[in-house]
Amino acid sequence: MGGVTISRRFDFSSSHRYYREEWSEEENTRVFGLCALPNGHGHNYTLEVAVAGDPDAETGMVINLVDLKSAVNGVLEQFDHKHLNLDTPYFSDRIPTTENLATVLWELIAEALGRVPLHRIRLYETDDLFVEYYGEAA
């Protein structure tokens, strides 16, 4: 039997601000527009986590969804209803764009899942904007 991908959706809400301290106010506004406003703004993020593998011969599962939910929810506690720049340690040296947030979530979720291979994460910032990351380097 071939491998199967299973995907589970999660929601969380966070605020963020795009701003580089070493740039001038004008440069930040030119590059980041409204996202550079001083007090930040927020989104309802939707995260889809996909793991892939062969279904277990006894359980028929690639991963027990209870374990997947527990691993991902454990990671999302750090982000849900938080300000990404101020309340998490991951964006001191990088902008909390959807791209960077996806790679951070990949690292944390992959670690939380242990031996279960993470296949893809898809992170929606809004309904019409999302990023996908497969753990690949450019």
Binding site: T98, F130, V131, Y133, E136, A138
Partner: peptide, 13 residues
């Protein structure tokens, strides 16, 4: 390590 390769999708109508 080189930069992560990320896919970004945007929806229009």
């Amino acid at each position: 390590m080189s930069a992560p390769l990320v896919h970004l999708s945007r929806c229009y109508s």
